[in-house]
Write a protein that binds this DNA or RNA. Structure first.
Lengths: 346, 346
DNA sequence: CGTCGTGGTTGAAAGGTTTCACGTCGCGAG
DNA sequence: CTCGCGACGTGAAACCTTTCAACCACGACG
């Protein structure tokens, strides 16, 4: 049989055994070629390697993993793969993983608990070495269970009350605060906070930070209203824009703080398309400072988060947790920063 | 030992064997509970299930896969996970996969062959049931090899000359054509095409379509210039903007057609920030019609591609290839559509 | 001329699951 | 009472890899 023989014969894929047979060596030797090439003489090594390419041999990772007990793979379960914020976080993770010679699988829960659950179960069964996740609900007992069952897990961009995880977050309360302080500085006395659902910790904490800053400024609680949205999407931003436009003149806010940039961009788009001026008629602050915020209809003031560092740090914590027996869980918190642009400066 | 015993004892994770032992049944019965619950009496089933939760049993997917030979998993190797175009494609795939009860892993090659290669090797070793990929280089022999070695693979959004794959594409030549026809209609007689590197088939075909339309309109070849970029990113769009601004007045184009929206948005941003008017001073056409195109500084005219359908169709082809023994490779081609907005209409 | 490394290779065991041919038990029919 | 049958349950084999103790040949050394 020459090297032109079909790589896949009779449906079964070639295994080390087949390679061994063809190279006239024992099975252990093939494994040595694969894992400790220095221990095998040049001649045999070459013969074995030759046999591998002739047969189109592909190592069976399941079998290796079964034997070895680890997979050299991390996974990041993203909350929303279409939100640039999370893809930037993912990129940070990817780079850190690559440096540590780990494969990274991305999974998208799309904000749905059911899909998240399915992905988590699958990853656990796959015995990935560790999981990074931005969970739909950080309090879900499932997360603690996964750790208890032996798969390290770190929470990305979500606060956790208990100390059972490593987590990497950005101070959302502070983020809400700086956004509102900025608007107050610009003289606004009636402001809407747009975002939801409040079940999302993010949304809640930014709101709390906003309210705290508002009352610290001595303004009336009733002049900071919460316009709640179903999700944090561009579409919902548009809808919110319409709702705000529909408010009676005297109760209409002069500025809006959005729980993220997608909402802000949707809202901005709706506002501009109806001929209103930003920021003259309505000032807008977003959150995340995604790349598209700067190139929006009106460049968007936004609260920047260190997206890539968030991902990198999370991955590093996970790597430590996996390798270091005396690892201690840490909660790392980054600080957000207001980037002021035309949408509030005029 | 009560149900409060620690789930992970002595470092080893519980296996079906442990479950069997605790439930006082044989190992085969546990497997039956897992896979054919109807074949086991209610009493034993309950006992086994109880033992599983007590022990915190998690099925070892590697072992199952090793035995079964298939994994019920697809993977999509994305070219650029930060480009909203690809995340929308991924979403289409995700939804189709979910409907077919498959898990989906996303991998990001980040446009780098090396990383793509690493991901592919890993996926092949993992024995995923099928791979979807938007490759860095669709001609790479590696892709054909993967198929030959038994892993079905479909190419997403890249043309392939040979008929060895299923592929799903959008007619890029036509896309380039409609973009240029639109600009010609609007009276432009000097236009730049911004994008690169030409090694990317996409970039090349849109350029070819553009040139064909240009000469069909009877315009001089030298009046359609190609401004080449390193990559298709926002940053490169900005750079291109500067280069165009630096051109001597008489050779400066009155309109620009960008190879994708990221480039277009970067360029738009640069142009607007230097006080030029779009489209009066420079008209801009993008490509992809990502969600952010509509909310850009000046709403962007763009060539829309059916992103989600692209993904869904690709996944469906792959599912067919996996399940249907008489599957035939197909090349599905979608048709792009020009969405005219302010950036060319004024 | 035995003995002792030593570099190179071997073969069996282990790892967790599924499958399948085969027992066992109880019960109704003959 | 026996036979046969259905419902349940069993245990061994197979999937593919890695590891490790043992083995072999052979040159060096005493």
């Amino acid at each position: 049989m020459s090297s032109s023989s079909p790589p896949v014969r009779n449906g079964r894929r070639p295994s080390v055994k087949d390679v061994a047979e063809r190279a006239q060596v024992s099975l252990g030797t093939v494994s040595n070629v694969l894992n400790r090439p220095d221990r095998v003489s040049a001649g045999t090594r070459e013969r074995v390697e030759r046999a591998m390419v002739d047969l189109g041999f592909v190592l069976n990772e399941s079998a290796r993993q079964l034997r070895m007990g680890r997979s050299n793979t991390f996974a990041y379960v993203m909350l929303d793969a279409t939100n640039p914020f999370f893809t930037d976080v993912a990129r940070g993770i990817e780079l850190a993983a690559e440096k540590a010679d780990l494969s990274l699988f991305l999974c998208n829960s799309d904000g749905r608990s059911a899909r998240e659950h399915a992905h988590l179960a699958h990853l656990q069964q796959q015995r990935v070495d560790g999981i990074l996740i931005t969970p739909v609900d950080p309090e879900a007992p499932e997360l603690a269970r996964i750790i208890a069952q032996g798969t390290p897990l770190v929470i990305v961009d979500r606060a956790t009350t208990t100390g059972t995880f490593c987590s990497v977050t950005v101070d959302d309360r502070l983020g809400g605060r700086v956004a509102i302080e900025h608007l107050v500085d610009r003289g606004h006395t009636r402001v809407a906070y747009v975002g939801g659902p409040v079940a999302i910790g993010q949304v809640r904490e930014r709101w709390e930070g906003a309210r705290a800053a508002w009352s610290d400024a001595g303004l009336a609680e009733s002049d900071l209203v919460h316009v709640e949205t179903e999700t944090l999407s561009v579409e919902e931003g548009r809808v919110a824009g319409e709702r705000i436009a529909g408010l009676p003149r005297r109760s209409r806010p002069s500025a809006v703080f959005c729980a993220n940039d997608l909402v802000a961009l949707g809202l901005l788009q709706q506002v501009v398309s109806t001929g209103q001026k930003v920021p003259e008629d309505l000032a807008i602050v977003g959150y995340d400072d995604i790349a598209f915020a700067a190139s929006a209809a009106v460049p968007l003031t936004s609260v920047r988060q260190p997206r890539q560092s968030l991902g990198r740090t999370a991955a590093e914590l996970l790597i430590d947790e996996v390798n270091n027996p005396e690892h201690l869980h840490q909660q790392v918190e980054f600080t957000p920063e207001l980037i002021a642009r035309t949408s509030t400066l005029g």
